[in-house]
Each structure stands twice: as C-alpha cells, then as structure tokens.
C-alpha cells in the first residue's frame, strides 16, 4: 500500500459520504468565529451528506448547511484512503 499523502482540499471537493478532518478555516474574522461556534473548526471530523450549493455536512451528529463565498475557504483532509478522490 502506498504511503498516505495528506492532501488538503477545499471542503466542496469532498464526495458524498466521504469523511474529512478540517485543517484550515480562512475568511473574515467574524464569520470564522461563527463557523467555529457552529463546530466548523480545525480538527473537527465532518462528513459530506450532500454536494452542491449550499452543501450539507454532518458535524458531531448534526446537520449543517454551508456555502462559502470567494473570501471564505475551508480546507479539509480526507480521512478514508480507499475513498480518495478519483478526479
């Protein structure tokens, strides 16, 4: 098995049912703070429930809908190697 490459991807690049750990949250400070309060912060494991705009995430057993703008970006690190992105 090849060595696992830790790759950071924007959250909207995840596939349905893929889990990932949030690595970086960029954006205007008040928004980042709100996201963190809602659980979208570094280290949280999330699962993508539904792709699209906005996307649907499972965070700690709860459902969050999220759509970023050009100044906001969440980078995640996919967890399951088997489900690595095909594209």
């Amino acid at each position: 098995m090849p060595a696992v490459v830790h790759e950071l991807i924007p959250i909207d690049m995840l596939r349905v049912n893929e889990s990932a750990r949030i690595a970086e949250v960029h954006g205007p400070q008040p928004l980042v703070q709100r996201l963190e309060e809602l659980g979208l912060r570094e280290g949280t494991v999330i699962r993508l429930v539904k792709t699209g705009e906005p996307l649907l995430l499972a965070v700690n057993g709860h459902r969050l809908s999220f759509r970023a703008d050009s100044s906001t970006m969440i980078f995640v690190e996919p967890i399951s190697v088997e489900q690595a992105r095909s594209s």
Binding site: G27, L31, R34, L35, L38, L40, P54, L56, H62, R63, L64, S65, F66, R67, A68, D69, S70, S71, T72
Partner: peptide, 12 residues
Amino acid sequence: GETPPFVMELPP
C-alpha cells in the same frame, strides 16, 4: 456587494 456565505443548522 458580493453574495455573503451561508451557514445554518438543520435540526432533526
């Protein structure tokens, strides 16, 4: 201005 980002909880 730009379309603002959107984040909201969907309760069960």
